[in-house]
Simulated assay, not measured.
Amino acid sequence: MSGHGKHTIHSDCIHHGWDNSFKPRITIKPGETVEFETLDASSGQLSKTSTAADLAKLDLGRVNPVTGPVFIDGAQPGDALKVTLLSFKPSGPGGAGWGWTGNIPGFGLLADQFPDAKLHHWHYDASLAPAMYGPGGRVPLKPFTGTIGVAPAAAGLHSIIPPRNVGGNMDVRDIAEGTELLLPVEVAGALFSVGDTHAAQGDGEVCGTAIESSIDVALKFDLVKGANLRMPRYVTPGPVTSHFDKKGYEVTTGIGPDLMQGARMAVSEMIDLLSKRFGYSPIDAYMLCSVCADLRISSIVDVPNWVVSMYFPRIVLE
Rank of each mutant, 00 (worst) to 15 (best):
S290A: 15
P24Q: 12
A53W: 10
D59C: 10
E177M: 03
F22E: 07
I297S: 05
G134N: 09
Q261N: 02
L191Q: 02
L317D: 08
A52C: 11
I9L: 15
G226S: 15
C289D: 13
T241P: 02
I283C: 04
V166H: 02
L58A: 02
P130S: 07
G168L: 04
D196G: 07
R173F: 08
I9Q: 13
D258I: 02
T27H: 15
T236Y: 06
V308D: 08
G204P: 04
E250I: 15
V70R: 06
A117M: 08
A285N: 02
A155M: 11
D40L: 00
L288F: 08
S91W: 05
L58W: 01
V240H: 06
A41W: 00
F278W: 03
P135C: 05
G106I: 10
Y311N: 07
G99T: 15
G94M: 00
H158P: 03
D284M: 02
V206S: 04
D222M: 12
A285L: 03
P304D: 00
D294S: 14
I297W: 02
T27E: 15
W98Q: 10
V206W: 01
F88H: 05
L86F: 02
L60M: 01
A210E: 13
S21E: 13
V185W: 12
H123D: 02
I148F: 14
L223R: 12
T253I: 04
R138N: 01
L317P: 06
M231P: 01
V34D: 04
T51E: 14
D59T: 06
G256T: 05
D59E: 06
D40W: 09
N305C: 09
H120V: 15
G3E: 09
G202R: 08
R25A: 14
I315S: 05
L157F: 06
K225I: 10
V194P: 01
G156R: 12
P163Q: 05
R173S: 07
G262D: 04
F244A: 11
A75D: 11
F107H: 11
A117G: 03
G178L: 03
G279R: 06
G149F: 06
P257L: 05
T33D: 07
T49S: 13
A41S: 04
P313C: 09
A218F: 02
K276M: 08
C13H: 15
G178P: 10
A154Q: 10
G3L: 09
D272V: 09
G61I: 07
V307E: 07
T253H: 02
Y249G: 07
A117S: 09
F278Q: 04
Q113K: 00
L46C: 01
V316Q: 14
A218K: 11
L58N: 03
Y249I: 12
V307Q: 03
K220N: 13
K89R: 11
T67I: 06
K118D: 11
L39N: 01
P65G: 11
S127P: 07
L85R: 03
I9M: 15
D302E: 11
V70Y: 11
A80K: 04
K142S: 12
S290Q: 01
Q201N: 09
I14H: 07
T49R: 15
T67H: 12
D196T: 08
